[in-house]
Amino acid sequence: MLDDLARLDLTTYLAIAGTATPTLDEPLRRLSNIADHSKLWIGIAALIAVLGGPAGRRTAVTALTAVAVNSLVVNVVLKLLGRRARPDRAAARVSATRQVPMPTSPSFPSGHAASAFAFVAAVARTMPGVAGYVRALAYLVGYSRVHTGVHYPGDVVVGGFIGTAIGESVAYAAGRRPHGRR
Rank of each mutant, 00 (worst) to 15 (best):
A68R: 03
A68D: 02
V69W: 12
V69P: 12
V69I: 14
V69Q: 11
N70A: 11
S71P: 04
V73C: 05
N75K: 14
V76Q: 15
V77K: 01
L78N: 05
K79G: 14
K79Y: 10
L80S: 13
L81R: 12
L81Y: 07
L81D: 10
R83E: 15
R84E: 13
R84I: 12
A85D: 15
A85R: 15
R86T: 13
P87C: 11
D88H: 03
D88T: 03
R89M: 15
R89S: 14
A90W: 04
A90F: 05
A91D: 09
A92S: 03
R93H: 13
T97Y: 04
R98T: 02
R98P: 02
R98W: 03
Q99A: 10
V100L: 06
V100A: 05
V100D: 10
V100Y: 07
P101C: 10
P101Q: 13
P101Y: 09
M102F: 03
T104Y: 06
S105G: 11
S107D: 06
F108C: 07
S110D: 02
S110Q: 03
G111P: 08
H112G: 06
A113W: 08
A113E: 13
A114W: 01
S115D: 12
S115Q: 12
S115F: 01
A116D: 05
F117N: 10
F117Q: 11
F117H: 14
F117M: 13
A118I: 12
F119D: 04
A122G: 09
A122F: 07
M127E: 10
P128D: 02
P128R: 02
V130T: 15
V130R: 14
A131H: 05
A131Y: 01
A131E: 04
G132M: 05
V134K: 06
V134W: 08
A136K: 04
A136M: 05
